[in-house]
Design a protein around this nucleic acid. Sequence first.
DNA 1: CATCACAAAATTGTCGACACATTCGATAAA
DNA 2: TTTATCGAATGTGTCGACAATTTTGTGATG
Lengths: 228, 228
Amino acid sequence: MSNLISIKSATLSEDIAQQLMNAIVQGEIPQGSKISEPELAKQYGISRGPLREAIVKLEGLGLVTRTANVGARVIQLNTQDMLDTFSTREALEGMATRLAAANMKADEINSLYALLDKHQAYLDDNQDERYLQQGGNDDFHLRIIHASGNAKLIRLLTEELYAIIRMYRRHTSDQRSDPRQALREHRAILDAIANHEGDLAELLMRRHISRASSLLQQAMEKMTLASS
Amino acid sequence: MSNLISIKSATLSEDIAQQLMNAIVQGEIPQGSKISEPELAKQYGISRGPLREAIVKLEGLGLVTRTANVGARVIQLNTQDMLDTFSTREALEGMATRLAAANMKADEINSLYALLDKHQAYLDDNQDERYLQQGGNDDFHLRIIHASGNAKLIRLLTEELYAIIRMYRRHTSDQRSDPRQALREHRAILDAIANHEGDLAELLMRRHISRASSLLQQAMEKMTLASS
DNA sequence: CATCACAAAATTGTCGACACATTCGATAAA
DNA sequence: TTTATCGAATGTGTCGACAATTTTGTGATG
């Protein structure tokens, strides 16, 4: 029962939107399933008003699809949509990396190098390898995104795309990506940023994301083959 | 009174969202102004329920900002936000152009050449020059975007970005861009697409958008100087 | 004259109820 | 058995009203 966690936001609608988003990304509400307003309202102990506003918001984030007089359904993950999402991410995050290369100051860059060193330590000691594959990987990307200083890019990437990307990762129960290879690519990207080589930094980031997309694609196609 | 136009959609909320969006983009609701729920509800003859859902949707589109217990305001256009928006557009539409170069069939390409020929004719006869500067220009871009075949890209560009871009154009009362220069650039982009040169097509589209951004920036800074 | 406190008004957030559309199930017909 | 039709049940869309918060306006005080 994840609905016991009350994050206490300013408005009920925001709370519910956040909780619904988590529930969908974590797979607690299975993909493709219908969103029943009376049921959820009773479950969360609220009325349908703020719940509907939350659903409208989730539709804007692309997590659910709505049809008039019928209702909302959680999106159905599939390979084509995943490829589309990663192409979009490649374009946006490539641009973010280019801007970061132009904007980042020395101390920010050093701080990022320190983060990568920490990742290296995790790999060498292979203590908690799960940290790297999940939060740690995203840390690097998120900090570059924010370093771009472009509010539109930040919003689209962190609010619109990353929720869905996390869904895909969780859905494929985290693929057999090579963390050491990823770390090497991160280092190369950061080196380009440190040298303020925007063109190169963008190119490397795009390749990095493109590779991750290919790996995910293979994992997904293996899954659909296994289940058919 | 634009609220007499009833577009008769399936649901009231969608209708209102569409009408509000038009009113904001057209400047009928001035930027930075407050969105009063009771006032708008009375004006459109509906209750606050669907109106609020429409406002939530507009917030997702980035046309209004909301603060809890205070209300919604139309976004305030400024140069920095415009530059951010165009950088984002450059990234997304560059990727769309690359994908279009890989996907477009001969008949689609010929149809686009025909469109450019029509634009050329408009310029030579300089009949209705306003067509080109407004709808005509977008036609070319929109058809390339759709030719990308990437649903995510299409949604982000046509739903999230183009509304704001139109706002900026209208706000600066359409700048002194050179339509002939733009047409030449469109031809070069289409040539690259026809040759299936994805790299080149993306590069040219990005330059094309970057130039438009610079022109808009100049126009906006001139306006802020004039009004200070 | 400026500033603060407090009450009144207006606005947002939330709720329950009703109208309408869709879906489901039973019955009848082919 | 299958399909079609119709009525009941469920669910979505919309409304009006109440609760809670913010804003406004008034007067007192320095």
